[in-house]
Design a binder for these strands. Structure first.
Length: 653
DNA sequence: CTAGGGTTAG
């Protein structure tokens, strides 16, 4: 009669299963076990364990299978305590060599983070089946011992045990964890042999394998051949493209990967599968990188509808997206609407104000944060110090720098020193800046010297600049922008032998060319621009508009800085670089013409903005009456009515 | 009984 219990169990109706069980004339082991397994299968492991205790109380002897079922209930509760308690029965009934019991023990120990015990339980099993092997292999993977897991898998193969879909899925994810494309590829061959390649789990694992190894093309090929997909598949493709954005040095392809990722997101929406919080945070981050505010807003609306706004991480991504897109108002609004505020959320908002040049608001918010007793970390202080630096609040900065170390026990890192140096430089205190650099107890970074050198140039202290340049060069810099800074400095000082020396170093170090790209996102499409010369055929229309703008700006008093900034031309070519046609100018011109007249223009630029461009854009913001938000490789510039939020101080001057 | 994955600040 216990089969009736099973019927209700299979229907997920445990209440009636229990009633039927209670009315059974005789309750044997099978009936009890069916009931216990039923509770476990229907996510009621605690009831299952209670039923087991009831069973012992009633004087029934559990079978090995009963014990296996109970152990699985413990495993789903991650309860080692209960598991240990039942281990006594396993010894008592001499069932530790039983396959089901061993499998269950292996899984229980694995879930509780005790890999060694899991493997011991596995080794004790007399007749190991595929499940035993798979449990043991997965146990390794779940506990971060991928190499061990793969070795065990090889042992399994050599024992002529045929893996199943479960096994290969776990093995593939372990190949992914240790980034072993070679092993993974061999496993894929095995999957083909056994006909597992069409299994969705297997395919998703393969997708991640390729993505983690940067083989986005192979991932795409695999994806295109899939007719059955799940949310895991979509998230993998989105995350994969987002990762490629960071991996590529080339900013043009980076932004292409970004828009590609967003295309996957729209396809996901059309597919009818509901995105989850991971999807939302990923796509918001992508929007923030390419400054796709319109899409970010649409996603915001979708998040509200889907009810994910209460998630802190989604909320933080949202605040960050608005900050990075230059919309501090909406960032602030989203921040205030969040019910829980983590340290990262506070930091994100403080940094947002700081980057927008709103120092007072940033510091006030930091005060609020301290009142709520959320502890700041090193990143929080990056925002706080930058706010002080921006406002020229020297004493406050020094004060916070001390509070950070003494009160919060945070050791300053390069980021903090860079801000302090930047501040001294802004105030024209070059000696103090240099002292600050000298105080750092490790090698100063490339960018800290760059900040200092740029400061020396703008304050006309060339001697100090040349000295710092030697220090910088001895560090063997890697960054193209660093070299360009030096080239410009030596060039404008007429030191041609130093120019050739730096160029030679660039060749030796194989430093790439400075790729100056700007892009603008309009209506879910990304348009990119490269610094070009006048004769560029495709941009002739934009160039014409740009020339009109230039003429108007000149009538307002704009003077183009004729100082020849060397960009990346080869040695021997003495052509001056066409600062007039800098990519950001083209992108902004394009934006002015193709966006609604009230809409701000948002542009991302791959390199640091130069002084001339900065000056020009100020005029353009006055001329057009538009807000222009430009994010370059170092900071955010928000131009409103001839003024810029950066306080007119950028490193590349 | 054993399976896939992933997010936020600089």
């Amino acid at each position: 009669m216990s089969f009736l219990v099973d019927v209700y169990v299979k229907c997920g109706n445990m209440d009636d299963a229990r009633k039927v069980f209670d009315n059974l004339p005789r309750r044997n082991v099978v009936a009890w076990t069916t009931l216990i397994a039923g509770y476990a299968q229907n996510s009621l492991p605690k009831h299952g364990i209670l039923a087991f205790q009831e069973m012992l109380h009633a004087g029934s002897y559990p079978s090995a299978y009963t014990l296996a079922v109970v152990l699985n209930a413990c495993a789903s509760l991650y309860s080692l305590k209960l598991g240990d308690q039942f281990h006594a029965y396993i010894i008592k009934y001499h069932v530790e060599f039983d396959t089901n019991v061993g499998n269950a023990l292996c899984s229980l120990y694995s879930k509780c983070g005790m890999l060694e015990y899991a493997l011991k339980a596995f080794r004790r099993i007399r007749q190991k089946n595929v499940v035993s092997w798979t449990s043991a292999v997965s146990a390794c993977g779940d506990n971060g011992a991928a190499v061990k897991g793969l070795k065990l898998f090889l042992e399994m193969i050599s024992e002529n045990i045929e893996p199943n879909e479960f096994t290969v899925t776990s093995v593939l994810s372990q190949c992914c964890a240790i980034q072993s494309l070679e092993f993974g590829t061999q496993v894929r061959t095995l999957c083909v042999k056994f006909g597992y390649e069409s299994n969705l789990h297997v395919r998703n694992s393969l997708l991640y394998l390729y993505i983690k190894n940067g083989c986005i093309g192979e991932a795409q090929r695999l994806f295109n051949g899939m007719d059955d997909v799940s949310l895991v598949t979509w998230n993998a493709m989105i995350a994969g493209h987002a990762q490629m954005m960071e991996l590529t040095k080339d900013n043009l392809s980076s932004c292409e990967y970004g828009s590609e990722a967003l295309k996957f997101f729209s396809k996901l929406n059309r597919s009818g599968i509901k995105p989850d919080l991971y999807t939302f945070s990923s796509v918001l981050t992508i929007c923030s990188r390419i400054m796709a505010l319109e899409q970010g807003e649409q996603i915001h609306a979708q998040i509200i509808k889907a009810g994910f706004l209460s998630d802190v991480i989604v909320g933080t991504s949202l605040v960050n997206m608005y900050n990075k897109c230059g919309s501090i108002e909406r960032a602030s609004k989203a921040f205030l609407e969040m019910s829980t505020r983590t340290m990262i959320l506070w930091t994100s908002m403080i940094t947002g104000f700081s980057q927008h040049g709103m120092s007072q608001q940033a510091l006030r918010l930091f005060g609020d944060m301290r009142l709520t007793r959320v502890k700041p970390n090193a990143v929080t202080f990056v925002g706080v110090l930058a706010a002080c630096s921006h406002a020229g609040m020297l004493n406050q900065a020094l004060n916070y720098f001390e509070i950070m170390q003494k009160r919060y026990k945070i050791t300053p890192v390069m980021d903090h020193y860079e801000i302090m140096v930047d501040m001294f430089v802004r105030l024209g205190r070059l000696e103090q800046a240099l002292n600050c650099i000298k105080k750092i107890n490790c090698a100063p970074s490339e960018s800290i010297w760059s900040i200092f050198i740029a400061g020396c140039r703008s304050h006309g202290n060339m001697e100090l600049g040349f000295y710092a340049a030697e220090q910088l060069l001895s560090l063997k810099p890697k960054d193209t922008e660093t070299y360009v800074l030096l080239l410009n400095m030596y060039h404008s000082a007429g030191r041609s032998e130093d120019v050739s020396r730096v160029r030679k170093m660039m060749k030796e170090k194989n430093v790439g060319k400075l790729k100056d790209w700007s892009w603008i996102s309009i209506k879910n499409k990304v348009y990119s621009f490269e610094t070009t010369d006048k004769t560029h055929p495709e941009s002739s229309v934009i160039c014409k508009s740009l020339e009109d703008l230039l003429a108007k700006a000149k009538s307002l008093g704009y003077e183009m800085l004729e100082s020849v900034e060397i960009l990346d031309e080869e040695e021997g070519e003495k052509t001056s670089s066409p600062t007039f046609y800098h990519s950001e100018k083209l992108a902004i011109t394009f934006g002015l013409e193709n966006l609604p007249s009230s809409s701000p223009v948002r542009v991302v630029k791959s390199t640091i903005l130069c002084r001339d461009s900065h000056n020009f854009i100020k005029y353009v913001s006055t001329l057009s009456g538009r807000e222009i938000i430009l994010r370059d490789s170092k900071r955010l510039h928000k131009f409103v009515n001839g003024k810029c939020s950066c306080g007119n101080f950028c490193g590349f001057l």
